[in-house]
Simulated assay, not measured.
Amino acid sequence: MKSMRLSALRESGRRAAVVGLGIAAVVGLASSPAQAASWSSTIVGADPGFESRRWYDGGGSTNITFTDCSSDVHVANVTLRKDLDFQPDPQYSTASFTNCFNGTYATSSGNWGDHGEGNYYFAVNYGSSAMLWVRTLTVNY
């Protein structure tokens, strides 16, 4: 009799373990971080060399879009950079945004490939003398 109860407990324990593992797997998948993220903001009277806020990217491409730009020079040179501690920040290619100066809904965007996991930011108009206004900027990564 004792061995029957023990066997029944073992079987129900196995079922509970399988169900528990299944639930843990589903919860793990549902709570895993999204592969893509984004944020939006504005730029108000940015001096040359303006640096955006930093964001963490787990890897993948980056797209930066400006909508409705204003500046004396009608160009925004946008450079993606990786924020490194205790060493110079590498800079990746620079995209020249010009279309966003063509009206309220005009946009310009740049795409950067995967530069690995890390903290990133973009800089605008290094070496220029013009200030920049952007009604909407969006960073997708």
Rank of each mutant, 00 (worst) to 15 (best):
F101A: 01
Q87K: 13
V27D: 08
C69P: 01
A46R: 00
L132A: 02
T98V: 08
L84E: 14
Y120T: 04
M4S: 12
G60L: 02
A34W: 11
G49V: 00
Y120M: 08
Y126W: 14
N63I: 15
N119R: 14
L29K: 10
S12R: 06
G110K: 02
S7T: 03
L9Y: 10
Y121D: 05
E11R: 14
F101G: 00
M1F: 12
D57N: 15
F122H: 05
T62K: 04
G59N: 02
T104P: 06
R5C: 11
A8G: 02
W112D: 04
P90S: 04
T107F: 03
S109R: 07
D85V: 15
C100D: 08
Y120F: 03
I23A: 09
A17I: 12
T42S: 14
S40R: 10
G116R: 02
E51C: 08
V139P: 09
G20A: 08
G22Q: 03
S12K: 00
S7D: 04
R54P: 09
R14A: 14
G113S: 09
A37R: 07
T67P: 06
A123H: 02
F50R: 10
A16M: 10
S70E: 06
S7K: 07
S32Q: 13
T62R: 06
W39L: 07
Y120A: 07
E51N: 13
A34K: 12
Q91G: 02
S71W: 00
L21N: 13
K82F: 01
T98P: 02
R5T: 11
L84F: 14
F101L: 00
A16I: 07
R81H: 11
